[in-house]
């Protein structure tokens, strides 16, 4: 369960830290906390796992990584954890998740994301991935993304108290 002041703090910084000499002091002022308190709380939130990382969030497409592919596999349930962990170890993989299949319309349960500089590169990386994780026998599909309509972090709001109660939900 997340502390209500911590939640306010996450809300205050979710759109980005100010680019000024003392950003935490500015945030502290908004929340009627001290600068040291803000820093200590952020350190603790990282330790507790509420913040996975705090840092620069880059725009891949603007920086030359034009090809973004979601690769999905229909992996037997007994193997999915092992394969998911193997896939995650490749440095060109950005995300790797287990999600529920949706019958015939969507038979895939293992999802991973590859950001590459071109489609050709991504296809090479996928071939490498299939080879090194022995994925040859499992149905898969690759979904390139030609357009991004929106990219921003999750926006949390403070008005609903259930945000606090449903942590880890």
């Amino acid at each position: 369960m997340i502390d209500p002041i911590d939640l306010q703090l996450i809300i205050a910084i979710q759109s980005g830290l100010p680019i000024v000499a003392r950003p935490y002091a500015l945030i502290a002022e908004q929340l009627a906390l001290t600068e040291n308190e803000v820093i200590a709380r952020l350190k603790q939130l990282k330790q507790q796992g509420f913040i996975k990382r705090l840092g620069v969030i880059v725009k891949h497409r603007r920086l030359g990584y034009q090809a973004n592919a979601m690769v999905v596999f229909d992996m037997p349930d007994a193997l999915v954890d092992v394969k998911g962990r193997q896939i995650s170890q490749h440095d060109f993989i950005n995300l790797c998740y287990l999600r529920p299949r949706q019958g015939e319309q969507w038979p895939y349960n293992l999802f991973c994301m590859i950001h590459g500089k071109s489609r050709a590169r991504v296809m090479q990386q996928l071939t490498q991935l299939i080879h090194s994780c022995a994925l040859q026998d499992y149905p898969y599909d690759i979904l390139f993304s030609p357009r991004c309509f929106k990219q921003r972090g999750a926006l949390y709001k403070s008005t609903q108290p259930s945000f606090i109660n449903k942590a880890h939900g």
Binding site: V58, L63, G153, Y156
Partner: peptide, 11 residues
Amino acid sequence: NFISRIGPVIP
């Protein structure tokens, strides 16, 4: 627009 922000990633 090379970065979207300097901020937290929440799992």
